[in-house]
Nucleic acid binder design. Structure first.
Lengths: 339, 339
DNA sequence: TACCGTATTGTAAGCGCTTACATTGCAAAT
DNA sequence: ATTTGCAATGTAAGCGCTTACAATACGGTA
């Protein structure tokens, strides 16, 4: 059995094809610079030996890895999956590879992952949200690694971002709910520390309340991790204040709230309205289907990839783009009709 | 502003600390071989310069990357998320980094990803399921990269695996359903081509039918991609044969089936029983909660990590482990009471 | 006092690739 | 026939690190 042989190197290929290493390298990277006969001969040898370029060596010599790193807060639920999928596809079409790691919403884990990805030669980084130690941005600029923030658009940030206005989106949803007659509002939010998305969504609700003459102080907020059971538990907690609507910072939390409501014998939306955020597939799986905010995941992912690649190849600062999030009305919220 | 400077290298550190490059390398990798004063001095310089070892250079010189690659069929739904999370955690505790990529259930994409990960110097690979071109296994053994299969345990495979017996698990569930009196059975399966898990689950149902004197030919099978809408559509299709129970190859498909049932005005489980597989979080979010097969995701992930690390460090063939999957009864299936 | 073993550090040879620069060959221009 | 320009190829210098081996220093032993 063929085994334990060292894998073929570029030198091996060069020797077997009777050309120099430079030529083999050209065949692999810039075939248009090689004459047709030579190219054919070299490719035959590559095929026959099963040669694969050694990535580490390539990165070292070229100082370019064609690799983009992304650090997302979690892989556990689908929040980032669709956007990341689109990001990855777009990258792939441009010859880049995506390296993903998850930080479990832990800032220091995130910092470590960022260092790891940079050390691995990532040409650029995708980060989620703006909230993080400024030292990280310093480090990145010192290492000359372009970074792009997604999932959150803020006006004037030093690091460019492709995202939507979490605050305005949540405000829009809250205003519609208020227009339905709801006044006693509760919110189940993700943990807002180090998470601008969560924080801004809470702010958005308060904005809507203020704008409609409802004191934001009357908002009951429960902050919990983004998982179904936590959402259910939080629902129990906020119900102590007898709200008529529970706005959730995320569909996963809303799914938990829905489950808790059912277990309390409450019918949604007749007894209580519940809304989500993100429009994950989950939103249409639960019953009733969730009224929620649709986030342009795919578009965000694709644009982020394009912008990041442009930043890398054109060696320029990135441009931010604000995308629109839209309210989707489904069955989980309805006008209040008992006064 | 400090910018555009080349990041500090090991040579820089050596010069600033007044030692040789070998000593700096030792400080980083095997500090116990360096005298305390030297170590202190070097560490101070590292701290002060913000030196991070260049990963590519390290891999090249050491021929060891402390990186494990995993190629999963999809990140789109949560099927592999929990297991992978556990895998990653266990790896991390041993100083390894995980590189994940998804093949979108496409064999040739998978093959490409495998090559990519090997070229990147992965010390070992985690693969999902056994079904793939033998040439891939050849390639891996030629490149001397250990691989481990997860999510499927088959008796005597050349490539070791950590998983459960998909066939037996599905058979067990099917037998319980048959014991409930069901005779007209339909199945919504994932695409079985190149997917032993899907295939074996179908086989498991047929086994159960045969064992109970029901002709396996009467099983209606609909194969669709693993997503909710596909599950819903497939449900419509299998209902043409008026089954009393629809076994789904996966919770995601079952969630789709549930949704379709509701849209047809059918009550689950009174009008029809539906079961899932995997026991994802989703299984408890839908209504009614799914009767399903619990897969030991976490345990599988952790064990896989341990075994793979052992294969790498001890340079030995891997051992397979068979884990147990258990049936979880919740509300989506019930005994047939109308004869 | 001469010698040895051990602990610590240094020297330098690669690891497999890319790429600036040098060389070669040949058709077109003079 | 000589020169020029360009396309194709080769030469060789690194990229930043690890590690086998060599060198050194120092305490202990005979």
């Amino acid at each position: 059995m063929t085994q334990n042989e060292a894998p073929p190197t570029l030198d091996d290929v060069a020797r077997l094809a009777g050309v120099s290493t430079a030529t083999v390298s050209r065949c692999v990277n810039t075939p248009e610079k090689v004459s047709a006969p030579t190219l054919r001969r070299v490719e035959a040898v590559i095929e026959q030996t099963g040669y694969t370029p050694n990535f580490a060596a390539r990165v070292m010599a070229a100082k370019r890895s064609y690799t983009i790193g992304a650090i997302i807060p979690t892989m556990d639920n689908a929040i980032f999956a669709r956007g990341l999928q689109a990001f990855q596809e777009e990258l792939h079409e441009h010859g880049y590879t995506l390296l993903v790691s998850s930080s479990a919403y832990d800032p220091s884990a995130e910092a470590e992952q960022i260092r790891t990805l940079v050390a691995r030669g990532a040409d650029g980084l995708l980060l989620i949200g703006h909230d993080r130690d400024p030292a990280i941005y310093d480090y990145l600029s010192r290492q000359n690694v372009p970074a792009l923030v997604a999932w959150s658009y803020l006006g004037d940030t030093p690091t460019p971002s492709i995202g939507f206005d979490n605050r305005a989106a949540m405000r829009a949803l809250a205003e519609q709910v208020i227009d339905m007659g709801h006044r006693k509002i509760a919110m189940i939010s993700g943990i807002s520390a180090n998470n601008d998305r969560a924080r801004l969504r809470i702010d958005g609700v308060k904005d809507a309340m203020s704008a409609h003459g409802i004191s934001p102080d009357t908002l009951t907020v429960e902050e919990v991790p983004y998982d179904v059971s936590a959402g259910a538990k939080a629902f129990m907690a906020v119900m102590a204040n007898t709200p008529t609507v529970v706005l959730c910072g995320n569909d996963v939390l809303a799914a938990g709230a829905l489950r808790a409501a059912r277990s309390l014998g409450l019918t949604v939306p007749d007894d209580i309205s519940i809304t989500g955020f993100d429009d994950l597939e989950l939103a249409q799986v639960v019953f009733p289907k969730l009224t929620t905010v649709r986030v342009p995941h795919q578009q965000m992912g694709r644009l982020a990839a394009q912008e990041l690649i442009a930043m890398i190849t054109e060696k320029r600062a990135g441009n931010s783009t604000k995308l629109d999030a839209t309210i989707i009305h489904r069955g989980s919220a309805r006008p209040l009709n008992k006064w």
